[in-house]
């Protein structure tokens, strides 16, 4: 049951992903609500991207699309050389687990599991052995500064600590891309800054980082800013 070998190294000359005229719309009764319109977006390996835009402009929708939680209504989405539209549901699960790490605004830890167990979840679905995954989970917890909180439940942690667990969890399967949807949105500025520091470090270690944010500070740290307005990319400075 060990996964079909997921191709983590990119054969498409440094491109992490590419979107071509991608659209997403929801059918609300007889009305069609277009949330994403003709998105053309190319992101290279190792980039740090900030996605900004007013509320309701489709940032989260775009991020879910990148993370293979959602499928486009039309257009193409290539992730590391694979056309996502053609993949089965099981393949999407596999990609999410192996190649992508999610960090959410509301942390989304599983409340009945402790820190180590939460970090282990993605490894469990990739078929890691219990010992191997426990060791790695402890190491990751240590890395985000929670080495002394291994047996704590999420409710026994502060928001900042919970978000650090979430980041550790997103790194469990050593993914290429980290997606973060307003990772500091629920945090005070101090813990927010800490989170940003960790994200920055990950970027320096070579991860591709895509962060949705309202914080202009993050936008400055990021290598590139993608601004959404009403489902369209408003301004996209050429990526280097």
């Amino acid at each position: 049951m060990r996964d079909r070998d997921v191709d983590k190294t990119n054969k498409t000359n440094g491109q992490a992903l590419r979107m071509d005229r991608l659209c997403k719309s929801y059918q609300l009764g007889s009305m069609e609500l277009k949330v994403l319109r003709d998105i053309d977006l190319t992101i290279n390996n190792g980039e740090y991207i900030a996605i900004m835009g007013p509320s309701g402009s489709g940032k989260s929708t775009l991020l879910n699309m990148i993370g293979c939680l959602d499928r486009p209504t039309s257009g193409d989405y290539w992730l590391g050389g694979e056309n996502v539209a053609l993949l089965e549901d099981d393949d999407l699960s596999l990609i999410r687990g192996a190649r992508i790490g999610f960090v959410f605004q509301s942390f989304n830890l599983i409340s009945q599991l402790n820190v180590v167990e939460n970090i282990e979840v993605p490894m469990y679905y990739q078929g890691c052995s219990e010992r191997e995954s426990e060791q790695r989970a402890k190491k990751l917890a240590d890395m985000v500064g929670l080495g002394d909180r291994l047996k704590h439940r999420p409710t026994e942690l502060s928001g900042g600590q919970q978000q650090r667990v979430a980041i550790a969890r997103s790194l469990a399967n050593d993914p290429l891309i980290i997606l973060a949807d307003e990772p500091t949105g629920n945090l005070d500025s101090e813990s927010g800054a800490e989170i940003l520091k960790i994200l920055d470090r990950l970027h320096n270690e070579g991860k591709t980082l895509i962060v949705v944010t309202h914080d202009p500070g993050i936008a400055k740290t990021a290598g590139r800013l993608v601004e959404l307005f009403d489902g369209r990319i408003k301004r996209q400075p050429k990526s280097e």
Partner: peptide, 16 residues
Amino acid sequence: TREIGIRRALGAKKRD
């Protein structure tokens, strides 16, 4: 429901 969503996002297949 939320736990199920989290697990799916973290790589759980339907059969998991």
